[in-house]
């Protein structure tokens, strides 16, 4: 089975949902016209990243009665979408969220579980952390979604792998940092390194949509990637430029890789569970 996967590596306007929504709909249309089946946007793509006190003013509810989601749900009749937004729950807690929308339905919403609150990051001050990491079924197979810091931790990708995901959709608004003589910033090199590692260790597809542009002095470096179950880079968007990157993925690569390398078959989650219980309860 083939999947034509598109990564929308965009710059968002900070706190300007109408402008960002318009860009989402235009790219959805373009990706659909280019034959894509699924279009993945970066973290907080509808809102921008360093929201601070804007958070309560730009939140959405991922339902058809929400004016923003209504448009996205409508667009999903043509092409599956992953969008980044601020989810306000019924008790008015705010989450950094990604929604998978397909054929007129919101299929799954992920709330970012790890909120970086150190160094230049201050997410824990403004957002509630999610507490679920769940894979979900799509018309292309079982997928998982994670947001930025979620995949700086090894456990969420592992959980999704064990929950049956064969494709992980990562989104981020990663500020570029770490300068030296190398042609890539440390942050770019690190993210590419771990994404390749997840693809290789779990023999799954890893698609990562990262944003571009600037918010005050922060640069977002783009460089969105797709790695296949062999850990091979199959697509990469340019650094620091907006891009719609479309690549055809052969999902049968899962069969070929796992025939050669049965890491999934041989994985022992019960052993992990057993040892974690010992560690946590000693």
């Amino acid at each position: 089975m083939k999947l034509k996967l598109a990564l929308a590596q965009i710059n968002s306007k900070l706190g300007n949902i109408p402008a960002n929504l318009e860009k989402h709909l235009a790219l959805a249309k373009q990706a659909f016209q280019d034959g894509a089946d699924l279009l993945v946007f970066p973290e907080l793509s509808l809102t921008g990243y360093v929201l601070q006190d804007l958070v309560p003013t730009i939140s959405c509810r991922p339902r058809s009665d929400d004016p923003v989601f209504k448009e996205l749900i409508n667009a999903s009749r043509d092409i599956d979408l992953v969008v980044g937004f601020v989810d306000e729950d019924t008790r008015h807690r705010f989450y950094i969220a990604s929604a998978y929308i397909s054929q007129g339905e919101v299929v799954h919403v992920h709330h970012k579980v790890y909120l970086p609150t150190y160094g230049l990051f201050d997410e824990g001050r403004f957002f509630a952390p999610g507490d679920l990491v769940r894979a979900f079924n799509t018309r292309f197979g079982r997928f998982g979604m994670l947001i930025c810091e979620d995949f700086w931790h090894a456990s969420p990708p592992y959980i999704l792998w064990q929950d049956g995901a064969d494709m992980l959709l990562f989104s981020s608004a990663s500020p570029g940092r770490g300068l030296n003589g190398e042609p890539k910033l440390d942050s770019s090199a690190w993210v590419e390194h771990i994404n390749r590692a997840y693809a290789s260790l779990f023999t799954i597809f890893i698609a990562h949509a990262n944003r571009t542009g600037f918010e005050d002095g922060l640069n977002f470096w783009g460089g969105s990637t797709v790695f296949d179950p062999n850990g091979k880079l199959v697509a990469q968007a340019p650094y620091f430029e907006e891009a719609l990157t479309i690549t055809e993925i052969d999902l049968n690569q899962l069969h070929r890789t796992r025939a050669r390398l049965p890491l999934l078959r041989d994985e022992r989650p019960e052993l992990v569970q057993h040892e974690l219980e010992r560690i946590l309860h000693k």
Partner: peptide, 20 residues
Amino acid sequence: DLLINPELVRKILTKFIASE
């Protein structure tokens, strides 16, 4: 290590100026 990659820095900083 105070070495920089001037081409990378140049790219980021010119885009920063244009953006701001």
